[in-house]
Nucleic acid binder design. Structure first.
Lengths: 284, 284
DNA sequence: GTCTATACCCAGATAGAC
DNA sequence: GTCTATCTGGGTATAGAC
């Protein structure tokens, strides 16, 4: 019967309208300003109607988070095809920072707001490249040998069945594994546990984005420079360790970062810019 | 006349009680849960009374921030006396992370909440080691040569007249300058702009703390290990770059980090622990 | 200085008419 | 399915009595 299906379509359509409105509010005024009333107002429905589609404001927030992770994943996917693992990883790092800078409220929501939001889309992906899932917490420091086990399901693009957040992180982890397998890590970090290495790099990038969103005096140098320096520090400035006189940048890779991280189009298809700095009280 | 002074003392005392109560609420339930009503309730005064001491909730928040920065500075001061600049910088880094982990809500408030809070206590300190104050934003990348200018007022401990936040950051920057002057930076980072280097290191540490507070799956390895790896990456694992077989840690320095960052006493005199993870709705 | 009382705002969520 | 109306509870801030 087509009738039930049409009703279903309509229901889905309204659900999308709700999420659209919610996303717009979050992008404009930040997550704290998101309220059921405002959403209802924006879509010209009564507040009560929202509860026919979402059980609570929290559920809407969670849906927005998933969208955010998917959005981040989308900017990663094309970069996953870069052949050279080091270049790929650098491109991913720059894209990660660019995403945070271009979608500050989205980034805040999925990575800086609430542990339950951040955790929802991350099924314990980090630190367990191909280890068992379990809470690898206890003895993770002694797991350097387990990373070259089987290769089935290991390819980045094939992980789309995971949730987006996990998939995005796997793209990074896979690149790291390749890099390690190729023995291309700079001498000073080659001996470390890859999982720790990955988390430390992630922290570095997250720190750059987070400080940029919250700390007015950061960075004093252009953002791309700081990003380039961080990537070089972890991935190793290609070979020549002794070049001196270069003040801020280290290589062509960093120079390119200037373009890619500052420009607005890291990946195709994001129609919605968010205001760069959040004002104290965004509302009128 | 002693009468006016006594009244003044009483007024100051109540002000302190207000801040005490506010601090306790923030530590227990997070900044978002701080309200005038709750403070008034805690000190058994009427809400209206609070407005005789603070113009708004925001003013209370700002006062709490200053306290937070001062608290952070206190944990830095004793470490500023470590002679070796590399060791000093590592100790500072570990203390920084330890502070964030031990006082999550305080750290959130001063570094992750609102740009105006974070900016209030930071008079443009970063990136301008001894340069003029002005917004060194534009050409900061070309300033590698200006760091050994004059030494008057350059000593870390002498900067107590600055606001606490700035002073704390200057302690780190000074250590970096010394390290650079001594030519002790690892080869791969020796050629960089010190200001950029400092900001990137700061971002790395901030990222570790921030992810630890917000991302449930971070880190999978013990925190101290990740901190140690980050410090080694930026400060250089002392000399031996080729040691292999060490899985997570790299040196005695990292091993020590395990103790200092995990233990509860980085600095003397903080009486108030905060719950480690923030629950979604902390209130009953 | 301190209180009570209150004005005025906002929120999330639900009951029950249509 | 959608609405109106409402419950319940929170918040900032102020007026005016004491």
């Amino acid at each position: 019967m087509g009738i039930a299906e049409r009703k279903n379509r309509q229901k889905q359509a309204l659900r999308e309208r709700i999420l659209d409105a919610a996303r717009r509010i979050v992008m404009r005024e930040g997550f704290a300003a998101l309220s059921m009333r405002k959403i209802a107002d924006a879509i010209e429905y009564s507040p009560a109607t929202l509860y026919l589609h979402f059980a609570s404001r929290d559920e809407i927030a969670r849906a927005l988070c998933e969208e955010g992770y998917a959005q981040l994943l989308e900017t990663f996917v094309p970069l996953a095809r870069i052949a050279d693992p080091a270049e790929r990883l650098k491109a991913l790092g720059r894209a990660y920072v660019a995403f945070g800078v271009e979608h500050p409220q989205t980034y805040r929501l999925i990575f800086m707001e609430d542990p339950s939001y951040t955790g929802a889309a991350l099924g314990g992906a980090v630190g367990a490249s191909r280890k068992e899932k379990g809470n690898g917490h206890a003895a993770a420091a002694a797991g350097a040998g387990s990373s070259e086990a089987g290769d089935e399901m290991g390819n980045a693009a094939a992980q789309a069945d995971d949730d987006p957040g996990t998939a995005a992180l796997h793209i990074m982890i896979d690149a790291l594994d390749e890099l390690r397998a190729a023995g291309r890590l700079s001498a000073s970090v080659a001996s470390m546990d890859p999982a720790v290495w990955a988390e430390a790099l992630w922290a570095g990038l997250h720190g750059i984005v987070a400080l940029n969103l919250t700390c007015p005096v950061f960075p004093s140098a252009p953002l791309d420079i700081v990003v380039g320096v961080t990537l070089d520090a972890w991935l190793g400035a290609p070979q020549a360790a002794q070049r001196q006189g270069a003040t801020g940048a280290s290589s062509a890779a960093t120079a390119r970062a200037g373009k890619s991280a500052a420009g607005q189009s890291t990946a195709p298809g994001d129609p919605t810019p968010e205001p760069t700095r959040r004002r104290k009280n965004a509302g009128p």
